[in-house]
């Protein structure tokens, strides 16, 4: 109940090809996160799955059934939008029940589902209000509630938290994680946010320029990125890339080291450099070093580390945690 298969889906707007052949399988109950830079086609892929856009070629299968010609309402999906997209003239209760009424669900069944969803999302006091009378976080919960009452096979989220402030984002993220556990439904979630991707996902799909770069569990992507793009995209601060030639690496065009896999020392180490800037975050410290051999590097030190700009420091990479990339960008 709730598997998804995408076979060689392509999508063009006019003569701009936005999706260039996407193949993907999502199993029942999985939480899959799409990440990628802005404009890479995440929303477009989600809209193709929802049936809001027709694919130029390729197939979408939900539960093994081809749905290319099935309208969005009959695909067994529900979608939560970044802008909430609540019906402004309807109360919270009617916002949630409109889709069910449209599907001719019996009214006692509708009432039951709305009650369950509103209890789950603590929306009970607001059921008779209109969207204009709710806060941003409450509106997003209503939007999620509207998806929940449909009891879909597949939840689609398009950056649902990006309009919320930081504290609310953490809370709502937790709620979505709990929702996934409780409903054990299949969910597909688009985000820009590294933390959301890493914490929520069973499986992350990294998209770039209309293609899938890599699919894998969060730790898989972090520990063994397939190529330079994924290595640079997953992890924050970003991985340091150093030209292979500068380090006398014959095979690798580029060598990558994550900031957290660099150790610094005032007396000795592999690369000598000067501190350009230091960011103190309390739990950890980001140091920007200008090194003679490796160029500008970022090092992430756990805990507090006192370093004045201009000071000389030596950085040493963790030998087992350096990555080598060939001329085509692939990991060697």
């Amino acid at each position: 109940m709730g598997s998804l298969k995408i076979e060689n889906v392509k999508k063009s707007f006019g003569n701009v090809e936005v999706l260039k052949g996407i193949d993907l399988e999502v199993e029942d109950g999985e939480f899959v996160v799409f990440v990628g830079p802005s404009g890479c086609g995440k929303s477009t892929l989600l809209r193709v799955i929802a049936g809001l856009e027709d694919a130029t070629s390729g197939n979408v299968l939900i539960d093994g059934r081809k749905v290319d010609a099935v309208p969005p309402a009959d695909r067994g999906i529900a979608m939560v939008f970044q802008t909430y997209a609540l019906y402004p003239h309807l109360t919270v209760r009617n916002n949630m029940s409109l889709g069910l009424k449209q599907a001719k669900t019996p009214s006692d069944e509708i009432a039951r589902r709305v009650t369950t969803a509103s209890t789950m999302l603590s929306l009970d006091p607001y059921l008779e209000r209109r969207p204009a009378e709710l806060s941003g976080g409450q509106r997003q919960r209503v939007a999620i509630g509207r998806a929940v009452v449909r009891e879909p096979k597949l939840f689609l989220f398009d950056e649902p938290l990006s309009n919320l402030d930081a504290a609310l984002r953490v809370n709502t993220r937790l709620e979505i994680a709990q929702l996934h556990r409780r409903l054990s439904a299949t969910m597909i979630y688009v985000t820009h946010d590294q933390v959301e991707a890493m914490t929520l996902a069973d499986k992350i799909v990294v998209l770039n320029g209309g293609r899938i770069e890599q699919i894998g569990r969060p730790m898989e992507l972090y520990n063994s990125p397939a190529n330079e793009f994924v290595a640079g995209f997953i992890g924050s601060p970003k991985m340091n890339f150093i030209e292979g030639a500068r380090l006398n690496e014959s095979k690798a065009k580029t060598v990558g080291v994550r900031p957290e896999h660099l150790t610094v020392d005032a007396k000795s180490g592999t690369w000598k450099g000067t501190v350009v800037h230091a960011e103190h975050l309390g739990a950890d410290t980001n140091l920007y070093l200008d090194t003679e051999q490796a160029g500008l590097l970022t090092a992430r030190i756990f805990g507090v580390y006192d370093a004045e700009p201009g000071a000389t420091l030596y950085a040493t990479p963790h030998p087992e945690k350096t990555y080598r990339f060939g001329a085509d960008g692939r990991t060697i």
């Binding site: 929802a50 809001l52 309402a73 529900a78 802008t83």
Partner: peptide, 22 residues
């Protein structure tokens, strides 16, 4: 908002109802 119209489509509203009601 496009999202609003799309939300209506996912809820199964016909194009006429999207036009008249949303």
């Amino acid at each position: 908002s496009d999202d609003l119209k799309d939300a209506g489509r996912i809820d199964g509203l016909s194009e006429y109802r999207i036009f008249f009601r949303l």
